[in-house]
Simulated scan of single mutants.
Amino acid sequence: MACPEVVTGHVEIPGEDYSRIQRAVDNGQYLWRLSPVRTAQEVGTVHLGLRTNDAYTFVEQYRDRDSGLMHAVVRVKHRNCTYLVELYQPEKQGKGGIWVVHRVTEL
């Protein structure tokens, strides 16, 4: 593995309370949570070993047919490694809903 500092696989951030985060965003805090790219960047640098100055590229957004939840994919170029960061909206769907990181996959 070329970038061992990066956490891959299913992501579970300890103490992350989605309804509390959604309420905070509704009150104007943590507005970066409304952007999948900014969420990948913030959560990635704090918890997953990515860096703020890595190249973050929005790939796609789609609604999961089974769960009805919105998902997004962000590609991250970190040093000589490339990752796909998968996010979803656990509380509200669409505009105004927070994004959380679900999985990181190395390409």
Rank of each mutant, 00 (worst) to 15 (best):
C3K: 03
V6C: 12
V6I: 13
V7H: 12
H10D: 13
I13W: 06
S19F: 12
R20Q: 05
I21S: 10
I21R: 05
Q22Y: 08
R23I: 13
V25L: 03
W32N: 02
R33D: 03
V37I: 15
R38Y: 03
V43H: 06
G44L: 01
T45L: 12
T45V: 14
V46D: 14
H47Q: 05
R51T: 05
D54K: 06
A55Q: 14
Y56M: 09
Y56V: 08
T57R: 15
F58W: 00
Y62Q: 03
D64Y: 09
R65E: 15
R65A: 15
R65I: 10
R65Y: 12
D66Y: 14
S67E: 08
S67F: 08
L69G: 09
M70K: 00
V76I: 05
V76T: 00
R79L: 01
N80F: 07
T82G: 04
T82Y: 02
L84K: 12
E86L: 13
E86M: 13
L87W: 00
L87T: 02
Y88T: 03
P90Q: 02
K92H: 07
K92S: 06
K92R: 14
G94M: 06
G96W: 08
W99I: 00
V101E: 14
V101F: 14
R103E: 12
E106L: 07
L107Y: 10
